[in-house]
């Protein structure tokens, strides 16, 4: 059976003006337009950077939107403390080479201050990130936060505006979204409120990978096939690490895997893969039968509306 992704394979092109522009050019232009609009309309934006592939694309688009000047906003990493080391070093190297300012908001600090309960070393910190993120937004008085979320990821995200309003409690109210007409993005909020801005709203997973291939965007090595020890749990392959220990009866295997998403290490599953180059990953993604989050994210499996529930609280 063909994959949902496989169907984006046309080779036809049309000429619009002298240069030929394809759908990736249009998606890129739309994202750059959104970033410039938010930078112009909002007082204190911030770009959220997890080190994942979508935020790597977002950072690349910021370069294209604002260079040769510096970014008109800092970059912020919400650090769960449950990281893949490859991702942490990627974040540091990337931001250092760009010469931009990095703010790190740590879930551990929220735990130490008693803002959230410690789920223990092996418990998920996914949901705790919300408090850390909202506290950092309040502390720095950010009125807009760029995120790399895409509408094809989840049915609640499919409902969200490009500029998504958050009330003074950081909450998303899906029944009361602001109208968003044409490309007239409205960036003003009252003090204490903020916006989430999603320049990649209309991109699919395959668009992201095709763009990474075209633009030669660097990613953490765990996005490409490598051998590592994993255990199968709740239908997912979890990497054995200081945060994930095999339970009794679980069988540790050494497999060739890669990650389709990057999140809290206790909840982010790997997929079996031998795709070790970006071209091979594009091929693999194009043939996938299981969605990106379905294959890899334990955080979406808690209930039918897990993402909506977290988004209402102020999650990414």
């Amino acid at each position: 059976m063909p994959s949902p992704n496989e169907q984006t394979t046309a080779v036809e092109t049309t000429t619009r003006g002298a240069k030929t522009f394809n759908h990736l050019d249009l998606l890129e232009s739309q994202a750059i337009f959104i970033m410039r609009e938010v930078a112009a309309e909002c007082e204190r934006p911030v770009l959220l950077f997890s080190g994942g592939k979508d935020s790597a694309v977002l950072l690349h688009l910021a370069v294209k939107a604002f260079r040769p000047a510096g970014f008109p906003f800092p970059v912020m990493h919400v650090d769960t403390g449950h990281n893949f080391p490859e991702v942490l070093s990627f974040i540091d190297e990337t931001i250092t080479s760009l010469g931009e300012r990095l703010i790190v908001a740590k879930v551990q600090d929220s735990i130490d201050k008693g803002r959230v309960a410690d789920p223990g070393e092996n418990g998920s910190r996914n949901r705790l990130q919300t408090t850390t993120l909202l506290d950092a937004i309040t502390e720095h008085k950010f009125d807009a936060a760029f995120g790399g979320a895409r509408r094809d990821e989840d049915k609640a995200r499919a409902k969200e505006r490009v500029l998504s309003f958050r009330d003074a409690f950081g909450q998303w109210e899906p029944r009361k979204q602001r109208p968003e007409l044409w490309h007239l993005y409205q960036g003003k909020v009252l003090p204490g409120e903020h916006l989430r801005a999603f320049p990649l709203s209309d991109w699919t997973e395959l668009d992201i990978w095709q763009y990474i291939a075209r633009e030669n965007i660097a990613l953490p090595s765990i996005y490409y096939a490598h051998e590592r020890e994993v255990v199968e749990r709740d239908g997912m392959l979890l990497a054995v690490s200081q945060f994930v220990h095999p339970h009794e009866g679980e069988h540790v295997e050494r497999l060739s895997v890669r990650f389709r998403t990057v999140g809290d290490a206790t909840l982010t599953g790997a997929v079996r893969s031998t795709a070790s180059t970006v071209e091979e990953v594009v091929e693999e993604v194009a043939g996938a039968r299981v969605s990106e989050r379905g294959a890899t994210r334990g955080d979406d499996k808690f209930s039918e509306t897990a993402m909506e529930d977290r988004k209402r609280e102020g999650y990414f």
Binding site: T9, A10, V11, E12, T14, N22, L24, Q210, A286, G287
Partner: peptide, 12 residues
């Protein structure tokens, strides 16, 4: 559907 054209990009 061809399996060799995924790097080509849809235009329209």
């Amino acid at each position: 559907m061809s399996s060799t054209t995924h790097r080509e990009e849809t235009t329209d």
